[in-house]
Each structure stands twice: as C-alpha cells, then as structure tokens.
Amino acid sequence: MGKCKLRQFIFVFGVIFSFACSQAPIHKQDSKQGKPLTIAVASNFYLTAKLLLATHPYYQNVKLVSGSSGTLYAQAKNGAPFDVYLAANSYFPQQLYKDGLSNKPVDYAQGKLVLYPVATGKSLEEILKQSNRIAIANPDIAPYGMAAKQILERNLVDNTKLVFANNVSQAFQFVDTGNVDTAFLAQSLLYHAHQQSKRAQYSQYLLLPLDTYNPIMQQATIMLNSNKQALAQDFLEYLVSKEVQEGIANMGYLAVNQKLDDNK
C-alpha cells in the first residue's frame, strides 16, 4: 500500500516538476562586446541606473547588482567580482579607496531629501507637529537617514515619534502602507513610484532646502581587481557626461556639476 502511494506521489511530483521546468524562460546569454560589466549599485540608484542603461545600446548587457551601500562595500572588500561600485554616499567608496582596493572615487549624483506626503501649502514644521509616526532611514547606516536626522534635530522633533527603516525604500513602504503618517524619502524614489503607478499622490511632497542638511553626495569608483578597467572607465565617463547628468536631474537627483542655489 505504502509503495503504491509513494509511486503515485513521485509520479505527480515528477509531472509538476517537469512542467515547471518547461515553463522556465530561456535566458539569452549573448553579449556583443565580450563579457559585460558588473556594476554594484546602491539600491536607491538601482532603478535610475537601469533606466540609463536601457536607453544606451552599448551598456544593455551590463549586470547590475543591487544592495545597500554597506553590504556591497563588504562584498567588494571581500573579493566580489564587481567592476564598478556606485554607492549612495561618499563614505564607502572613500573607504574602499583607502583600503587600496579601488581607484579614486568620483561624484556621480547628489541626492535630494523630501518629506512625504505633504499637501500643498503645508510647511515642514506643521507636518512634523501633526504626525504621530515619522519614518526615516536608519541614520547610522543610510545617508538619507542621516540628512533627515539633521532636520529633525533642528526642529526638536520628539524622538519617540520616530521609526527607523533599514533604508529609504523601506521608509517608503511604511508610509505607503499607511503605517506611518510621514516619511523622509529620496526624491528619486517618489519619481520612480510615480512613473510606475502614475498616481498623483506620489508628487505630493515637500522638497527640503539643500542648505538644511549635509549634501548627500553619491560617489562611484572602479575596483582595482577588475579586468575591464578601460570599459569601466568608459562607463564612468558616460555616467558623469552632460547627457546623463541632465537625465538624472529629471529623476530626482541633482546633477553633480550643479550649484547649491540651483535647487528647484
């Protein structure tokens, strides 16, 4: 009896398994320029990088590895096969440079901090006073969280109101699911949320003045152990080119050559 049942089970499982396998998509592995670049990118810049690469014929095969800047740093330091590292701050790339593992880092974007959601006409002080729960990215590990903390401290916000998300994406989840009233986010995140859903609510935010927090300078660096130095250098030049910088200025970042008072 048991044997018969077991056979039946194996048969059913086998059928399901082979069906699942036959449905799996077949990935095309062809790449016209030999092996593609592997780029480790901080999660806040991931969607932007994806958009940038998708519009560029040369870089369509680039492999993007997304994660928090700290995780990617730890991976890069321990020999992960990254060619380029795009961080969400300047601290981690500078650290890699100091460790003697990468080239000199360059600025490639500047982050813009926003408060969300904010109905038109409301001020920062009003919103902070009215909110019961405010989500910020963890200031110890996330650059946008550190910036948010500076603003909160200046406005003497009660610390018990604060909820610490792992990163701005999680702060967004907290506010988007209605679990907190307000969150400090990256403008780029709301840009992508708006692009994907086309919901008007994602454009109801308050852009915080750039002189109220330390600049969130995102830096990129080329790993020394990469065997595609020239290709990586080309990519970095493309990233800081006028064309790309104008593009990311529309996606919630500040182009790196822009001045402080150009903030719109």
């Binding site: 740093y73 989500a135 963890n138 590990i141 998300a165």
Partner: peptide
Amino acid sequence: MIGGNIPGETQVVSIALFNYVEML
C-alpha cells in the same frame, strides 16, 4: 520589516547585528 528598529522595543539582536555590519 515590521519592527522599525526601536531600541528596547523592537531592536532585537539580529537587527542590532545587521546594523553593526552595515556601519562597518
């Protein structure tokens, strides 16, 4: 996901550990 990293309330060891690693 649901903790919010609040010391003494929801910041358990695994979260504290993760923060240390992220802070290098």
